[in-house]
Write a protein that binds this DNA or RNA. Structure first.
Lengths: 217, 217
DNA sequence: TGACACATACCTACCGGTTGGTATGTACTT
DNA sequence: AAGTACATACCAACCGGTAGGTATGTGTCA
């Protein structure tokens, strides 16, 4: 997973969310704070302050910080999935056009500060892969599930264009995520989105090389 | 920067390093611990315990945890630079062969646990880019400087093969790092090095497409 | 050659604040 | 009346950082 809206479904986290909204407020606070500061640097107190609830509410819904992390990963999938599902690029009849459209969509949502378009799952898993198997696998599933949607289009593109190279749809879908995640890291290191945009451009060229090698062009 | 030896120059960090070695012991402890646990999860106390020194020694050499982070980034460059500089792939006369050799070398050092071949700079900058400009720029320099060596080979390859596509040596060098960093993230998310190895294979194919398009093949 | 001056390289003990987590109480909803 | 959804108050452990001491040099001059 990857991109995100910084504005949550509940539009704006209120000072005191209505009864029943504390869980969602905490989850959305987690997505926002962790993307900016990382997992370990985000404390439960800060989460509660941002969400406008107390620690009692936190431990009412989550039995530990780790449990919150797992739930936040699920929430991340929940919030990003419709974003990509409703995007216009799915309308293309050609599977390769859909994939390239996905990449263009990625470029289009690169706006605002870095924490507005980087990935919760990628950030979190870097810190927790050795410490928490539960969080690791939840974040891993975020990325794998997101790649799985692309995989279908790659499958179709492979059938249609039959490139010379022996590549699998799964490997290509994962590679797109590799480039995106790496782009996020480089963007953070450089302080701007340039490397991410460049990375996507290189990836598009690779896919064109790969598929157009025997296509109609 | 990226790969690393987990075994330090001072072979093994002793329980109590000899007088004068505390600084290096702390730095090497930082590289090891941060790559496994992340930056924020690594405390000064734990650093001192691992290095076999006390807090007094820590603050004798570093005025803050942030200062240690900056120094560790420099140490990271110091320890990885000779590793790549002494590698055999530099012997190739053809610049493209050197680049492909670099990637093969990357594959060759993917061994042991994840924290043994992932990147200190990439891990650290993900957590600190918003919180510490000093650490961010130090880690950014790690990656940029490492890419700069590759850039020379790309420059030569570009001159020699003159590919049709309008790409710069800098952009290509940065893209290799993007793929590597992204590979590290996916490897952590999946729990194995597969995505990293696959990513490198895709990158090699891209470069071959790009340069062989007008080459002798 | 020795002794004094001084710097470097640490170590022990401690500080206020924050951490993740708990125990208990209360108000609202059904 | 009872369960759900919180809030309040609290805790031991740990956090980054400081204060003040000591052990081990090293340079200087008689």
């Amino acid at each position: 997973m990857y991109f995100p809206p910084m504005t949550h479904t509940a539009t704006k986290t209120p000072a005191h969310p209505a009864r029943g909204d504390a869980r969602l407020a905490l989850l959305d606070a987690a997505l926002a704070l962790v993307r900016r500061q990382g997992w370990a640097a985000t404390s439960i107190d800060q989460l509660c302050r941002t969400a406008g609830v107390t620690k009692g509410a936190f431990f009412h819904y989550f039995e530990s910080k780790e449990a919150l992390g797992v739930a936040a990963a699920h929430r991340w999938t929940e919030v990003t999935t419709p974003l990509f599902e409703n995007a216009a690029y799915h309308r293309h009849a050609d599977p390769l056009a859909r994939i390239l459209g996905y990449l263009d969509f990625r470029v289009a949502i690169v706006q605002g500060p870095l924490e507005a378009f980087t990935c919760f799952a990628g950030t979190t898993v870097q810190e927790t892969y050795a410490a928490s198997e539960a969080i690791r696998s939840a974040c891993g599933a975020c990325i794998t599930d997101h790649a799985a949607r692309l995989e279908e289009d790659f499958e179709a593109a492979l059938r249609k264009y039959r490139p010379r190279a022996a590549v699998t749809a799964e490997s290509l879908a994962l590679y797109t995520q590799t480039v995106l995640q790496g782009g996020f890291v480089l963007a953070k290191a450089k302080g701007n989105a340039g490397p991410l945009l460049d990375g996507i451009a290189h990836l598009k060229r690779y896919l064109q090389f790969l598929f157009k090698a025997r296509s109609t062009s």
